[in-house]
Amino acid sequence: MSFVMGCAPRRKCQVIEQRLPLAPARAGRFTGLGRMLVGFALLGVFAIVSLPSPAAVIETEALSDPALVARYRHLIDEYRCPKCQNQNLAESDSPISKDLRSEIRRMLEEGASDAEISEFLVARYGEFILYRPAFHSGTYVLWLAPLAFVALGALILVAVVKRRRRSQAPGLQAEEREQLQALLGRAAQADQLDKPQ
């Protein structure tokens, strides 16, 4: 029925309904629960389509030990591709990411610790390559800004709630109630006059 709700004078709406006797039934097909289910189904499809498929690019078969594979999977999630800066090494298919992945595999096989691998990469590509850089003067904004924003949001929320509580409308005075009744009465009368005979 949504398509008849926009028009202001009632009479016109009724005319439309009379002309299109089938319309309400047809429009009602996708209301309420049905519409919500369709929405969820679409959301699910989009979620699946947009999932990254890291399995396509991580060359785990080259590693000798399942424990190394687990560490490898974890490490390539933690480092950023220097070339394509919004992807990590696992997601990126750029040549530099391939090189860095093979370098990480080589170091893992040679028994390097995670810290050594991290040092190796930072020495060459800078802290930029870390998705979780160390906490120091250059990165404290990065680490603390989200907390600050959450705190700010909480403050605003508290302020808004407090003000709403304070300014809750007091009940109508007797005089106002009379006024309201008078207005409502008038509206009801007008309504009666509006109805088609």
């Binding site: 220097p82 070339k83 530099i96 090189d99 860095l100 370098e103 060459r124 590509y125 800078g126």
Partner: peptide
């Protein structure tokens, strides 16, 4: 092989 490039931090 790109080995020196990697040591230099070349990414392209």
């Amino acid at each position: 092989s790109g080995r020196l490039g990697l040591d230099l931090g070349v990414f392209g």
